[in-house]
């Protein structure tokens, strides 16, 4: 039983970090209605930049520099990619983010190289014991950081003036424009927040898996989470991330041996499929309100 709880807790903590990646997608989707294919590559770029800056700066300054880079990137993306595509079909924007993804990946690897790099942020991965349970210190730190970020974001979207404006933009661009909400700034802000989330995810995942190309593939982990939680729900991304993390760990350990193992990689997709049968907008997705 203790072992099962350990597996579940380990899964939950990893799940929080999955949520972090999914959150980046949700933020962009909420404000601009675009599925941002480049989110994984933004994570990779942020991690690469951080590793690069670490060679010249101390840790806190390197993180700050990487953050500035992500914000500058958000502003550039708004001006170069999004603005010319205003009032174009959403598919055009989606395609643009695919291109953007390749571009960011290439730029990042061009500047900082393609060889896998270690990222050490000073949290050791030595498990410690609480009441007989073995818990990874690193996962705990990651979970706490992600949890804090999520609370801050929920507060920002629900309570602040700018957050309210961003929600309005996601409901109806043109109407938001008509009440004087500057769309460009709204988009730049949401991409900057997505950049921040990418940076945090890049730090956590980068120091766990090493910084290399495959980091951009953790975006694939976000897909079942988005389907489960609903693509436009912040709480949905969190809870679905936890569900995916815990369930894939438990499934691997307890179901895996019966089917030959390795079900961790596809179990979340299976779960997502089942949820879709019952909740087509995901567990917390925004329903399309139709009055008849």
């Amino acid at each position: 039983m203790i072992f099962a709880i350990e597996v579940a807790i380990g899964g939950l903590l990893v799940g929080v970090m999955y949520s972090l990646v999914a959150l980046g997608f949700v933020l962009i989707y909420k404000s601009s209605g675009v599925f941002n294919f480049a989110q994984g590559d933004m994570t990779l770029l942020a991690a690469l930049a951080l590793v690069g800056f670490l060679t010249i700066f101390p840790l806190w300054l390197a993180i700050l520099a990487a953050l500035v880079l992500m914000i500058a990137l958000a502003i550039a993306i708004e001006a170069i990619v999004l603005r010319p595509l205003v009032a174009r079909p959403p598919l055009a924007l989606f395609m643009a983010t695919i291109g953007l993804g390749f571009f960011l990946q290439g730029i990042g690897q061009g500047i900082w190289g393609t060889d896998p790099k270690g990222l050490d942020i000073g949290i050791s991965d030595i498990p410690f014991k609480i009441k007989g349970l073995l818990i990874s210190q690193f996962d705990l730190a990651g979970g706490a950081l992600a949890g804090g970020l999520v609370f801050a974001l929920v507060w920002f979207f629900q309570k602040s003036r700018t957050g309210r404006a961003l929600r309005a933009v996601s409901d109806d661009h043109e109407a938001a424009l008509s009440v004087g909400i500057p769309l460009r700034r709204a988009w730049a802000i949401s991409w900057a927040i997505a950049g921040l989330v990418a940076l945090v995810a890049g730090i956590m995942w980068g120091s766990r898996l090493g910084v290399q190309f495959s980091l951009s593939l953790i975006a694939l982990k976000a897909l079942p989470i988005l389907i489960l939680g609903g693509i436009d729900s912040i709480p949905g991304a969190i809870i679905a991330g936890l569900v995916v993390g815990a369930s894939e760990n438990l499934a691997e350990v307890f179901l895996g041996p019966y089917v030959g193992g390795g079900i961790q990689t596809f179990f979340p997709y299976l779960l997502a499929l089942v949820v879709l049968w019952f909740k087509p907008y995901g567990m917390f997705g925004r329903e399309i309100i139709e009055r008849v």
């Binding site: 929600r167 996601s170 409901d171 109806d172 109407a175 008509s178 925004r286």
Partner: peptide, 11 residues
Amino acid sequence: VMEGRRKFEHL
């Protein structure tokens, strides 16, 4: 005030 009652439906 645009035509078609452009409220922000999820607010």
